[in-house]
Simulated scan of single mutants.
Amino acid sequence: MIRIASPLVLLTAGLLLFGQGAYIHVKAVIAQILLRHAFAQTVATGHDVKPWSWADTWPIARIEIKRLHADTIVLAGSSGQALAFGPGHVELTPDAGERGVAVYSAHRDTHFRFLKDVIAGDQIDVTRKDGQTFHYRADGSSVVRFDASGIDPFSNNYELVLTTCWPFDAITSGPDRYVLHATMLRPTQTSSDAQLP
């Protein structure tokens, strides 16, 4: 009896773990569909539009790297709840196009999976909720502890940082973060808060 029960318990546990992992990925894909719709409405109306009625966040930007066919909608805030559905704009950092370092964070196995394929020189486009698009050039990357990033959001430059957990293929989370650094090129449109010196 024990010989039969043990494999069944292991099979059941394996199926539950697989189902949980698949659920996370399915949720991430479906959320991005709803977020794209809400972001389009936000840009068109100029008002924050929640992707679903009970959401405690809303889309504020779109990150795109055409060479990699990477395209993802960013949410306001970087809480664990927000990151389950998309990248988050880290609190107290500037918006894309503003002086300083705009920082966006996401999970390595869903929305920022493409970061491992970004190379120096890649163009990263960030469209804000006001419809303005800003172009950044990937300069390089680093791996740092989560509590020792060295990022100064109030820098005098116009920069972008995309960050996720490291290493990319790890199963569990750890203290290290992968940090992709980029510098803004001339914006498509200029505004008073996005003038280059």
Results as ranks from 00 to 15, higher is better:
D71W: 06
W52M: 09
L92I: 00
H89P: 09
V161A: 15
R145M: 08
V9L: 15
S79A: 08
L160F: 03
L10A: 14
A5D: 02
P7C: 02
W54Q: 08
R62W: 09
S78M: 06
P187G: 05
R62K: 15
Q81H: 10
I33E: 12
R145C: 08
A84M: 11
A13N: 05
P153L: 06
R186P: 07
Q195Y: 02
W166A: 05
A38Q: 07
V144M: 09
A5F: 08
A102G: 13
R3Y: 09
K27P: 05
H107M: 07
N156M: 05
A55D: 03
V118L: 05
R113Q: 05
A120R: 06
R36K: 15
V143E: 00
P197N: 04
R186I: 09
W58V: 10
V101R: 03
S79F: 04
R36F: 13
R3S: 12
V101P: 01
P7D: 01
Q189T: 15
A138L: 14
G80A: 14
P87R: 03
T190C: 14
F114I: 00
Q20Y: 15
K66G: 12
V161W: 05
I171A: 02
L68E: 00
A70C: 03
D152F: 01
F18L: 11
V74H: 01
I24Q: 10
H25F: 02
T57P: 05
L75D: 09
V9C: 12
E159V: 02
F168H: 15
P153I: 07
L75S: 14
H181Y: 14
I63K: 08
L162Q: 00
F134Q: 01
I33C: 12
W166L: 00
I4K: 02
M1L: 14
Q32A: 09
R113I: 00
T12N: 07
A182F: 05
V29Q: 12
V179N: 09
I119W: 01
S149P: 03
D176Y: 11
W58D: 00
I63S: 10
F39N: 05
F18W: 10
Y104H: 04
D139A: 11
T93C: 11
H69F: 04
S6P: 01
I24R: 11
L180Y: 03
S191E: 04
K129N: 12
T133D: 04
T188H: 13
P167C: 03
K50M: 09
A138Y: 12
G121L: 07
